[in-house]
């Protein structure tokens, strides 16, 4: 279970003035899990995302930077040393709004697969117990977040019954969320993969939705 005051799971088609998806994306959920426990030998797979709280939006406008530094410039500075490396506050400032989610709470239902790089010593048992220990203790590699790092996530392991979602049994708890980002395929030139997200009683069965079709 993860929760937080704000979240922003940015839609790739609205990246400049960020607009969040209605719910957490599977790739953001994977990010949360990896912040808690990850080794190159395993790969987290998100099975289900339970939307516990009503979906609410909020608008925030902030000063941001428009560009980023090029590697060529950094190299020049390393070579010659008389290059001014900084981002100018007055020149590169842009004001951008973000449409964020408020008061979110999700339960992530996931498993991991052992990826090809595993040695003889890699057992599911070992990784499973390590992940479990960390989640119980609240340990993490770095603090997990909900889409952007300024929206930190609190997390807890649920070992018993799942609490009921706000949308359980409600009419608006079953809806078509349209095409959502599933994840980025890093082995295939960072190609984004999309899926059609269907919410039923506040639960998005990611694997089932993916079986019904993905797009990339």
């Amino acid at each position: 279970m993860v929760w937080g005051d704000y979240a922003c799971f940015t839609r790739p088609e609205m990246k400049v003035e960020r607009v969040s998806y209605d719910v957490m994306t599977p790739s953001a959920a994977r990010g949360v899990l990896e912040a808690i426990y990850w080794k190159p030998a395993i790969r987290w797979n998100v099975d289900k995302i339970h939307v516990m709280n009503p979906i609410k939006f909020d608008n925030i406008r902030r000063n941001e930077r428009s560009g980023k530094i090029s590697s060529v410039k950094v190299e020049r500075a390393m070579r010659e040393g008389n290059v001014s490396l900084y981002q100018d506050k007055s020149e590169d400032t842009v004001q951008r709004a973000s449409l964020l989610l408020r008061d979110v709470c999700y339960c992530i239902d996931a498993h991991f697969d052992i990826s090809e790089t595993n040695g003889e010593t890699e057992t599911d048992e070992k990784h499973y117990n390590m992940a479990l220990r960390r989640m119980r203790k609240g340990q993490c590699f770095h603090h997990p977040y909900l889409g952007c790092r300024e929206f930190s996530a609190q997390f807890e392991l649920i070992e018993g019954e799942l609490p009921a979602s706000y949308y359980n049994g409600r009419v608006d708890g079953t809806r078509d969320l349209g095409i959502m980002l599933w994840d980025i395929d890093f082995s295939n030139d960072n190609k984004p993969i999309f899926f059609r997200a269907q919410m039923k009683d506040g639960i998005i069965d990611v694997q089932k939705c993916r079986e019904e079709g993905t797009f990339s």
Binding site: R65, E75, G81, N82, S84, L85, Y86, Q87, D88, K89
Partner: peptide
């Protein structure tokens, strides 16, 4: 790195070995 248009004092950079 992110600052108002004040140019860095680059004197110390000279010490960096070319990569």
């Amino acid at each position: 790195y992110v600052k108002s248009g004040v140019v860095l004092n680059d004197q110390n950079k000279k010490a960096y070995v070319a990569n």
